[in-house]
Design a protein around this nucleic acid. Structure first.
Lengths: 236, 236
DNA sequence: TTGACTAATATGTATATACATATCGAAGAA
DNA sequence: TTCTTCGATATGTATATACATATTAGTCAA
C-alpha cells in the first residue's frame, strides 16, 4: 500500500493507520495517549506528537485536549476524482488528438449565463477529436474581468483549457457531473444519434479572491467516457 | 477562505499558501529557505520546518534537500468528490425516503461478474424511492469471502450500503461514472421512458488486505442527479 | 443542591540543540 | 579532460524542555 516507512514517526503513523483502516480500532475508539505511545516506542513525546498531528491532519483521527485522540468516523463519502486532460486521455488510447475551434465571440454577460462578469466575457465553443471522430464538445465562458488578456487570444492553436492553466492561477473549482440525452444540435456536433446518453461535466473555476475565471461544459459521447475516482479513508 | 490562523506556524502556512494560490509564487518558484523564514518570522527553524512540512504534505510545495522548497505544478486534475449517502440526499430535498429490496440470492461467482470471490457472493437488487417515485436502482455484489456474515443478513430493513458501512471496514474504493441510455428493464424499474439518459455510478470497495468487499452499480434517473466535486489546489 | 474555584491531565505550540542525509559545486587526482 | 573526493548547504529526524490551553473531576462554600 504505502512505501515502507523508514523514520520512526512514519512507522507510528503507518502502524496506527493500519489498525484504523483494518477496523481493529473502530470509529470512536480512543487511541493510546501520547505518553503511552512515548513509552511503547521508547521515543520522545515530540515524535509521537508529530505522528498524531499528521494523522489528525489527514482526517483519520480527531484530537481533543484532556480527552485524548479518537478514531474519526468516516466522512460522508469523499473520493479523489481524477479528471484527466482531454488530450492526454485520447493519447492514452493511442489515437491522434485534434482540436477545432467552432466559434469565438466577446460579449456582455447575460443573466441566463449564471456567470457574473462586469467587464464582459469570451464565449467559446469547440470540439475535441479522437482520430476522425468527435469526442467531446466544449462550451466555455471566460471572464474578462479576471482574465482580460483572453480578449486578445484567438484560441486557434492550443485548447482554451490549456491556455487558461498556463496563464491564470486559480484556487477553487467545482464540478458537476450529469447524464443528458443529446439534443439535435449536440448529436450533430458529436456525430451521434439524437437521444444518445452523454456525460456532461460542468466545471467552474475561481481565482484566489473568489472571482469567477471560467465556466466550461464538456459533453462527452455516451459510453465512450468514464470519470474514475479512487479513494482510501486516509486520503493516501 | 480558511479560519484565521492563531498559531505562528499556521500563520506561516497561510501566508505562503496565499502567495501560491494567488499566483504570486508560480509553480517552480523557489520559496525562501528555512533559515530565511526563521529570520523573517523571528522564530526557530523547527517552527518554520513544521509549516513547510505541512505545506509539503498537502501537496502545495515540494521539498528537496540542498536545493530548497519549490511550488509544485498543479497535479493532473484531482478533485474531492462527494458522493452523498442516498438517504441524506433525498432527505435534503425534503422528500420522504423509502427503500425496497427486489431480489436477494446467494450464488457462486461467475466470470462475467468481474468480481472474484471463492466463497461465493450475495447478489442484491433494490430500489431507492424519493416520495413515491423511484430515484435510484441498485445492483450489488457482496463477497462472502470477505463478508461471510452477509449470508445471514436478509437486507430487508436498512440499505445494503448502510449495513456494509456499519459491519465492514474498508480501505480503498474506486468509482467510475458513466452516462447510459436506460434499457427497457431499467426504464421499468425507474418508471421512466426507455432511452432516457441515466447517470451510472459504479463503485468497488476493497478491504485493508486488498480483498474485494462489494461492487455496486447505482443507476440514477437522468437529470435528477448530479455528482458534485469541489477542489482547491491545496486540498483544503 | 448548586455554583464557583481548583487541581489534574492531555494536547498545542514553540525553542534550542544535535546529528543524519541528500546533493551541488568546486578542488584535486588520474 | 574526466573522474573522484570532499566540503558546504538545506532539509529530515529526533530529543529534552517549557509553558499555554482546554477540559474534566473533584472540592468546598453559599
Amino acid at each position: 500500500m504505502t512505501a515502507e516507512p523508514r523514520s520512526l514517526h512514519e512507522r507510528i503513523i503507518a502502524e496506527i493507520g493500519a489498525r484504523i483502516v483494518s477496523g481493529e480500532w473502530a470509529p470512536g475508539h480512543r487511541i493510546p495517549f501520547e505518553h503511552e505511545l512515548t513509552e511503547q516506542y521508547a521515543c520522545s513525546r515530540m515524535t509521537v506528537n508529530k505522528a498524531l498531528s499528521q494523522l489528525a491532519q489527514s482526517g483519520l483521527i480527531e484530537r481533543r485536549r484532556r480527552l485524548g485522540s479518537f478514531v474519526r468516523r468516516p466522512r460522508s463519502e469523499a473520493a479523489v476524482l481524477d479528471i484527466h486532460d482531454i488530450k492526454a486521455e485520447i493519447a492514452a488510447l493511442g489515437l491522434p488528438y485534434r482540436y477545432e475551434l467552432i466559434s469565438r465571440q466577446v460579449r456582455k454577460a447575460a443573466k441566463t449565463d449564471d456567470f457574473a462578469s462586469v467587464a464582459g466575457l469570451v464565449e467559446l465553443t469547440c470540439r475535441h477529436f479522437a482520430g476522425n471522430a468527435p469526442f467531446c464538445f466544449e462550451e466555455r465562458l471566460i471572464s474578462l474581468e479576471t482574465v482580460p488578456q483572453a480578449a486578445d487570444e484567438p484560441f486557434l492553436e492550443g485548447t482554451p483549457g490549456g491556455w487558461l492553466l498556463d496563464h491564470v492561477p486559480w484556487s477553487a473549482a467545482e464540478h458537476a457531473i450529469r447524464a443528458r440525452n443529446a439534443d439535435r444540435k449536440m448529436a450533430e456536433a458529436l456525430a451521434i444519434a439524437p437521444g444518445t446518453a452523454c456525460l456532461v461535466v460542468e466545471r467552474r473555476t475561481w481565482s484566489a479572491d473568489q472571482l469567477p475565471i471560467t465556466r466550461v461544459r464538456l459533453t462527452y459521447v455516451g459510453d465512450g467516457h468514464a470519470v474514475v475516482a479512487h479513494f482510501s479513508p486516509n486520503g493516501a
